[in-house]
Amino acid sequence: MTERYIARSSAIAARMLGGEMMIMSAVDSTFFTLNEVATIIWQSADGGTSLSEIVEKVCREFEVEPDSARRDAEQFVDELSRHGILLISDKPIDNPSTRPTEAL
């Protein structure tokens, strides 16, 4: 399977509130709230950590089968990338503009 790398877009605003990560696309104003697992994926999306490593991290913290976690993570990143919230590449993403615009 091709490895994937994910990075947070700069065209978003995000903040943790009441224990939930909230994200808004500055491009199409779509608003998302993330659960705990999705928040780990989001916070790990630094462009340099592969999705496989992120899924391993999720599996260490939650009782979940690796295949199931991988499938859910793939769906999650695909959906956020469709709204321009996450950037996806088959190589590490080294772009300062991908840093989040708000403190996580």
Partner: peptide, 13 residues
């Protein structure tokens, strides 16, 4: 305007 979207998001939070 993306910058204003971010401002409104912050204001709401």
């Amino acid at each position: 305007d993306p910058d204003l979207v971010k401002l409104v998001f912050r204001s709401a939070l």
